[in-house]
């Protein structure tokens, strides 16, 4: 038996192993684990100001949160925003992918066109859509004007503002998700569709019984991304609404930004962040442990 170059198992091999893990562990700890723990720690203290140092207050921030109407509005808005962006953007992405995967003329250009929103920065997208939504001379109102319809202040009215923001997000995200679906569709051998066709399956049945189940791994991946984005994407709010009117478009992360960096109440912002974190962690856990089992990986 020859000796292992690192010694026969034992201490040296263990040290070697840990050294290999070290770079990843350092990054993970410094930029993920430590900030999360530190945030939780800060959420238990008051925000230090001038000559008043931080003081331990336990769960006071969380108690305040329960009584904070803007928090509840932001949370509710965020749930509406999630419901309005996740499923529509996925469905749209799948539909577009199915279309540009088919043998149609100019599909290269079509794919490019659908992918363009992904390439644009969200701030630029928001500015484009700001123009679309502008009352009177924005694109939508000009089109409405052709039919003699009155101008609408899409972003200025509490009834339409959140919907308008949702539309922008779906437009931005669907093209990105489409790329994943397109890649997945091209992995499906065409004979499967042909076999199903010969067996008498209609176009609809072929989609639901063959294509859709085979796209499930992609759907799971996209679903997780869409969910995270629903709580993460707030860039367009800075340009389009700043959370207004009357907090109608304030989302959780935007509210955290306002509390933390406009009102400088970092202790409370830390507490709000913990809520967002636990919300996302729950969603991720649910998906991996429950949906994972229903997905067939090839």
């Amino acid at each position: 038996m020859t000796a292992h170059p690192l010694g026969n198992g034992g201490r040296l091999a263990a040290i070697h192993g840990w050294l290999l893990l070290l770079p990843a562990a350092v990054l993970l700890a410094a930029f993920t684990h430590y900030p999360a723990v530190a945030t939780f720690w800060h959420s238990l203290f008051t925000t230090p100001r001038g000559n008043r140092p931080a003081r331990f207050i336990g769960a006071d921030h969380y108690r305040d949160m329960l009584a904070d109407p803007i928090f509840w509005t932001a949370l509710q808005n965020n749930l509406v925003f999630a419901a309005g962006t996740i499923l529509p953007s996925i469905a749209l992405a799948m539909a577009m992918a199915l279309w540009v995967n088919a043998r149609i003329a100019g599909r290269g250009l079509l794919r490019l066109a659908y992918f363009t929103p992904t390439v644009l920065p969200m701030i630029a997208v928001a500015n484009i859509w700001l123009f679309f939504y502008t009352p009177d001379y924005g694109l939508f109102d000009q089109v409405r004007g052709l039919f003699g319809l009155p101008a609408v202040n899409w972003l200025g009215s509490g009834d339409t503002a959140l919907g308008a923001v949702i539309v922008v997000t779906v437009w931005k995200e669907a093209g990105f998700f489409m790329i994943f679906y397109l890649a997945a569709l091209q992995q499906i051998p065409p004979e499967l569709g042909e076999a199903a066709q010969l067996e008498g399956a209609s176009r609809w049945q072929r989609f639901w019984r063959v294509t859709f189940p085979l796209l499930m791994p992609t759907t799971l991946f996209v679903l997780i991304n869409a969910t995270i984005n629903a709580f993460r994407l707030v860039d367009h709010l800075f340009v389009m609404t700043r959370g207004g009117p009357d907090n109608a478009t304030s989302l959780l992360l935007y509210y955290i930004y306002e509390v933390g960096f406009k009102f400088w109440d970092q202790g409370y912002a830390a507490a709000l962040t913990m809520v967002l974190l636990s919300l996302l962690a729950t969603v991720a856990l649910l998906k991996f442990f429950w949906l994972e089992r229903k997905v067939h990986y090839q």
Partner: peptide, 9 residues
């Protein structure tokens, strides 16, 4: 089919 075209799921 040559590849059998079985539905993997």
């Amino acid at each position: 089919f040559q590849s059998y075209a079985l539905f993997p799921h």
